[in-house]
Nucleic acid binder design. Sequence first.
DNA 1: TATCAGTCCACCAACTTGGTGGGGTAATAA
DNA 2: TTATTACCCCACCAAGTTGGTGGACTGATA
Lengths: 135, 135
Amino acid sequence: MLSKKSQYAFKALTYLTEKYNEGPVLISEIARKKRIPLKFLENILLELKKADILDSKKGKGGGYFLKKSPEKIKVASVIRLINGPIAMLPCVSLYFYERCKNCNEKHCGLHDMMIEVRDATLQIVENRTLRDLVV
Amino acid sequence: MLSKKSQYAFKALTYLTEKYNEGPVLISEIARKKRIPLKFLENILLELKKADILDSKKGKGGGYFLKKSPEKIKVASVIRLINGPIAMLPCVSLYFYERCKNCNEKHCGLHDMMIEVRDATLQIVENRTLRDLVV
DNA sequence: TATCAGTCCACCAACTTGGTGGGGTAATAA
DNA sequence: TTATTACCCCACCAAGTTGGTGGACTGATA
């Protein structure tokens, strides 16, 4: 399951997608409109900024905004950043791979199946962007 | 990601699948062969028993064994029992559904996408059984 | 220089995860 | 009937994560 933090991140990002090219948006505005605890949202936005997804401007008239256009920001990369691995097992993860101890990956039915699950999921989340989330 | 508990559960279940129709298997044997902490495994097997997946016999010659044949035990039901929801959001979960507050499910792009992810995953895990895990 | 708005750091309660210890109880065999 | 075997059950634990808060600081603008 996605953490609440991830859900907040997506809410904030879709809001910023709707406001794309309208200049910086206040953290407090996003928090109010999307019902996200302000200080918690602060951390999330900062993390998204450090990952080059958002950019910000300080002082009066400042706020947060998308650094790239919404159709260039993949859902998969947001999930990996805020939530972590997409795969169900470390031994089938592409970005968070860890070898499976006491389990031969060559002859493990669970492993093979979880690769299928991973690929079916990636097929979707790697091909959707923030733009697709705004209906 | 699946918890270690879930991974242990699958290891134990595949072991019991291999030993299906060979009588009860000791917890201690499973623990040793699959390198699972004994007392932790105890809890897991008990939970699987309460869910009618395993059965046990006490006293000498006792142990655990599959209650039904391996091809009747779906991977999906084991995941739900030991790990919890398969879906990525509560508002798209079939067995652990919770209404999404401050988010209209009818007009939520994330919601729609996560339904697709859920269905793609279920397509796989609902159609595989313990038998498929033993290669 | 006053104000605004993001940045940074430290801290927190509650919960989950992964586990351990020990006694109780049912079944079996001698 | 008694000893042994092996599951059952309860309580407890450390460490980590999650979700969140408070306060001081820094840079930008007017």
